[in-house]
Design a protein around this nucleic acid. Structure first.
Lengths: 337, 337
DNA sequence: ATAATTTCCGATAACGTTACCGGTAACGCT
DNA sequence: AGCGTTACCGGTAACGTTATCGGAAATTAT
């Protein structure tokens, strides 16, 4: 809170102008060597650090990226780590705001960061968000925007995401190959793009193999272990009981697993189970749960790279889409052959 | 990236001075009602938002808190959520930087945020950090500082932390009560305060009950599942095999569990196991693992509150210590009576 | 010696905002 | 009529920094 050392302090102490100090510090060619030396010595001694606020105000850029995410669960924390790593190296500071899956907080966060605090956004929308005016507003102001993971379709921006359809395909193909015939899916909220795409892969694969998809086998529930547990209990009690379940997140897979165990059914024999995300936990439970790896860290890094590329004015970036391929890791929960 | 609307734009459009616009927007008493109305109407129309950079520069405060944490694992992410919630409500913006458990990155992060970007710090030091000059530097500059979770002892600042000794006591008392006699501990790096305190509780309790602590039963290993797994394998192979293990994190407990299972030993019969953090995962594995809840979310909120109190000039805060009581949750891994 | 160039440095404006001071006009009071 | 008061508004400086221009002194060229 004490007054920071400024360029002015140095100038007064050395009896030269602030202009000269500024130039000396930036190693400008038109400053005498000994002046430079004196300035640098004193700036070191006083532990001078340039005031970034002043610079940002002057240059109209903050070198700060506003990252808006719905929460800090395993997947998103990993992605943020990836963003952080690349951004830091490129000289950017990252400002992370959690919307806590709330549309309202997402708007508040966006507004706040728009107060000239950041010069660009990296956004993953909350599951509650159905209206995208606040996102469009960012673009209206011609502020760079990159979307990742939970993207918004009808907005033209660089998008980095998983090939969610392929993830659904891989999981479903695998279950079918293992001889499961009645495969249910535990999906997320109906407006959640990533969920719908995974489901699309699932439906598509069923069709390819001539399998009917029972409507009662498609469950939308909140992105949450408890709901998944309840939903699975109902599924298992229904008259057309599925013999396999594909959940679009590992959290939900865990919930499903608990319900299956409680019912006294065995995996993979009675019920096959495949999750999504490949979180560390799935290999620790018994039985270990098969899961689709989404390379969250890579997605994070690619996102930051796309942002940087965009900032450097690569015109072609404007609505490029980078799609990361997922990979199914097969474990005991679904391997019965 | 387009020019933001400024107070000047409004002033010119309405043919009044920027001063008047400024006052009108802040509802100053000495502005005619109709002028106010006109200013407000136009500012709404142009979507005016005050430039926080300019304000920060002027007022010498950013209303931004720099949060430096070692990583974004479950516990810290939860704490950050707590900080975020309280801070946001109080009008602060939070800037989270991960040091990634690296001393070097911690220093870089501190330096960056010191560039007048934040007007205070909330810090949890990395496990690698043994020198605290960068932390002291914050205080030398009279910048408010609050420490939480992984605190530093010889620095005078408000500290919010768990009663780690008590956590160790509760875990060990419970194991002893369950009839375990040879209790080993898997601790973290030797310089990590939270680890040492939990161990202190452990040692203290052993002593109280007249139990010797075998030196071979005290293992320091990295805060990491893999190391815990290896360490446990060695422990189980040693001639004086422990009959219970207390790990100072759940991650390590999981690692220990894997080693125990692999060895074909049963919990809680052959080996008792108690972890720390009470992460969701521990109730999902088989057997469910007993664990010490540390109320991370509460710690986060208390930390932010302490920060706010400090900023409002509460003098008594300067080195207050808020200590949260942990609570052991007993599960199958250690309940044999 | 003079002109031309180079070397070095200072003054000013600007980024967007507000605090502070000052000023004008209208009004009310005696 | 003359004075004080009130209501309203504008100008300026300041926050810390750098880009731009211009200028003095020193050096080189003629």
């Amino acid at each position: 809170m004490e007054k920071q050392t400024t360029i002015k302090d140095i100038a007064i102490a050395l009896n030269i102008s602030t202009s000269t100090v500024s130039r000396a510090l930036r190693d400008a060619p038109d400053v005498k060597a000994e002046t430079k030396a004196a300035v640098k010595a004193l700036s070191d001694k006083l532990d001078y650090q340039p005031n970034r606020l002043a610079l940002s105000l002057l240059n109209r850029q903050t070198n700060t990226i506003g990252v808006i995410i719905p929460n800090l669960d395993y997947v998103l924390a990993t992605m943020v780590k990836g963003i952080d790593e690349v951004a830091l190296e490129a000289g950017y500071t990252v400002m992370v705001c959690q919307s806590d899956e709330s549309y309202g907080r997402e708007i508040v966060n966006t507004k706040r960061l728009l107060d000239s605090l950041v010069d660009g956004f990296i956004v993953s929308v909350s599951s509650e968000t159905k209206i995208f005016e606040h996102i469009k507003k960012i673009q209206d102001k011609k502020i760079p925007l990159v979307l990742f993971d939970r993207i918004v379709n009808n907005i033209a921006a660089p998008k980095i995401r998983l090939d969610n359809i392929d993830g659904g395909v891989q999981a479903t193909e695998h279950l079918i190959e293992q001889g499961y015939k009645k495969i249910a899916i535990l999906a997320g909220p109906e407006n959640l793009n990533i969920s719908n795409k995974r489901m699309e892969g699932y439906l598509q694969t069923l069709k390819t193999h001539g399998l009917r998809s029972d409507k009662g086998h498609i469950i939308h529930c909140d992105f949450n272990q408890q709901y998944a547990y309840e939903a699975t209990k109902e599924l298992l009690a229904s008259k057309n009981r599925p013999d396999a379940i594909f959940t679009i997140s590992d959290r939900m897979a865990i919930g499903a697993m608990l319900a299956i165990k409680e019912k006294g059914l065995s995996m993979p024999h009675d019920i096959g189970l495949v999750g999504f995300n490949n979180e560390p936990i799935v290999s620790l439970v018994t039985p270990a749960i098969s899961s689709v790896e989404m390379y969250a860290f890579e997605i994070g890094k690619a996102t930051a790279r796309a942002y940087i590329e965009m900032m450097s004015g690569a015109a072609g970036m404007s609505d490029q889409e980078i799609i990361i391929k997922p990979k199914l890791f097969i474990r005991a929960s679904s391997k019965r052959r």
